[in-house]
Design a protein around this nucleic acid. Structure first.
Lengths: 212, 212, 212, 212
DNA sequence: TATGAATGAGACTTCATTCAT
DNA sequence: AATGAATGAAGTCTCATTCAT
């Protein structure tokens, strides 16, 4: 029998998370004081601790953006038949997030989280989980493509997945630093790069066999 | 007129930088106290301030690893004739640094610097400079390759350079998080990906075969 | 006109006092939070303030154990004729309380109250009242014994009373600290000590023997 | 090579301890803030932590008065031959401390420590050690007296020691509460009580044997 | 040059109490 | 009568930097 509704409670939580996201995004985790978050949230000192046990909780809650992960799965839906097209959709989806102005704070806090993950186990776990969820999506796609002879079978599916993940993480960095990244051009490069992963001579051999 | 020799002064500075690198690498910039650095360096509280004006100075001095940049140029020396081979040499050089155990602290501090660059202008300048120096090396190689028809001319050289930089930054992240990255396998993937950037005659050739 | 019955009100009060006693006994007054008491009582934060105005009220209500005082009077009932026997009964009664396992929390809270009495006037009043009620019982017994030549008349009845009180308070301390006190042996010592307070004819007798 | 002399360092420590003693004596451990101690000591916030690691350290340092214990041993020096006289000297020494105006703060803080000992292991250890050191002095005296037939041999030396300790602890309580204790009169009572511990019939029998 | 004691603002968190519901 | 969310002052402790020696 709570005194405030579940909805209100979640609204308050979000209010705090929004304030914390803004503060962390501007000043980083350790140069943001709880007082800053409190001020920005419009609540009282004590109220924050009604919803989060500590500053660390707040960091852990924000260091990983789960939306990104959820979005991941949706991106490849509808491309069940063509694994390569699934990968391309994935890339486009990520690329969209890279340039989405409304995700700016999230990107910056994410990068702070990458550094935080070096010494904060909870944050590290979240970051690793993020990579895992990407691999969980990419590796099967690659393997399907390999079994359909669309991708070279002598390459490690895991290495391909990690390479793609690294690529996007690297672009996040360049973008949060306000580097003049042309994401469209980079997508074009990636598209061609993926083409390089296609089987090389075997493909021709296969055709010859088929036509023979 | 300094009362101690220039050599001694530099030795002391290095002593402090070594201690700071170790501390920052373990606990990050903001969870390392000056006291930690002082203790580790074996000097006194006051001594540090004789050689560095502030903690921020120490951070700025360490956030960018100049060795990496210098090494960069050396990697491609001796491949003047073949730009693609130059790129591959660059990749191998970076890959070696990725797994060099003696560069562990530098990698970790580097990642901390990436987050720090979001709000510390000096650090940001250093990071950007690092990217620039990579682009300064890669872009000409790509353009040479394009003019020699070794790489497709409809791709942006800058996009290719940034893509390669992103890729390596992303791998730095995965490695500092102790992810089980197989760098050799990733290099193989990269090699094939670079192959995908070649001019697209092969595809036409395939068509010709089909129409024959 | 109260909306709940008087009985229910008292039950609630006792519920809170029980919880507070347990908490205070474990953690002392100032390291127990109202939240601890609330949790233990099973009531709500606000409910406590319907029955007690403040934490200080709770402390004041518990710092003095009135049961002990009431018991005091009962102990000596039935020994009206023999004041020394009354004192001994008193001692045995206290000794029983000292080792009564069910009085453990009360003893501990009592000791906390002794320190609290140094700066909390209400608690001090309670503690002093406890001593007074003991003196009110002991002094008349001593005076009766003195008038019956059972106790030496050159000793202050008040000093004897205070000495006995001090003795028992000191044993409370040792017992709450879990010191291995042998209460039976101590009672035997006390018994003999009381014997020492008898008029000093025996010594004269000894002299008479010597001079004989 | 400390920058300040050992003497100065100890003076500063004492300065802090004096301030803490005064504050604790007035308001107890948990209602005294570090700010109070800082203000009273005339030092800065940080300075206190240069000499004591925490408030708990300060409490532990003050909860036990070692002077009292050292004094204990001195009191009985010079009474080597007569154990009973040693006990009496001990009692007079304690009594003097009970009424020493300059020990007022120490007595009050001591009582606070008795409550603190219920939940603070360091303080408890100090308190127990205090009792032990008293027993270490008293028990041998009692045993000597018993072997010389000055005290009854059927009483436990430990029980006698604990009884004496309890007695003095109890008087400390009454005195810190500003009760009108007549220490002289109480000493007289104690003297007679000790007399009650002498052997009873056996003493006469012994003399008869000796004179026979 | 070199030391390390000293500073004091500011960090995170707790808690007795209130009050709208 | 009863709830429990909300308050905000106050608590303990840390830390980058300075400065007398």
């Amino acid at each position: 029998m709570p005194k405030i509704s579940q909805a209100k409670r979640e609204a308050r939580q979000q209010q705090i998370l929004d304030a914390a996201l803004a503060c962390f995004s501007e000043n980083g985790f350790h140069q943001t004081g709880m007082a800053d978050i409190v001020r920005r949230s419009g609540l009282s000192q004590g109220a924050v601790y009604l919803y989060f046990q500590s500053k660390d909780d707040l960091i852990a809650a924000l260091a990983i953006d789960r939306h990104q992960q959820e979005a991941l799965l949706n991106e490849i839906a509808g491309h069940a038949g063509d694994p390569l097209e699934g990968l391309r959709a994935l890339a486009r989806g990520y690329a969209r997030w890279l340039t989405d102005p409304s995700a700016g704070q999230t990107r910056r806090v994410g990068v702070n989280g990458w550094a935080e993950a070096l010494r904060n186990e909870r944050v590290r776990a979240g970051v690793i989980e993020g990579i895992e969820s990407a691999r969980t999506v990419i590796v099967p796609l690659v393997e399907q493509a390999q079994s359909k002879r669309l991708l070279s079978r002598d390459l490690s599916a895991d290495a391909i997945a990690r390479t793609l993940v690294a690529l996007f993480q690297g672009f996040v960095l360049q973008i949060v630093w306000n580097e003049p990244v042309n994401v469209e051009a980079a997508l074009a490069v990636l598209d061609r790069m993926l083409g390089g992963l296609a089987p090389q001579r075997p493909r021709i051999a296969a055709r010859e066999r088929r036509t023979t």
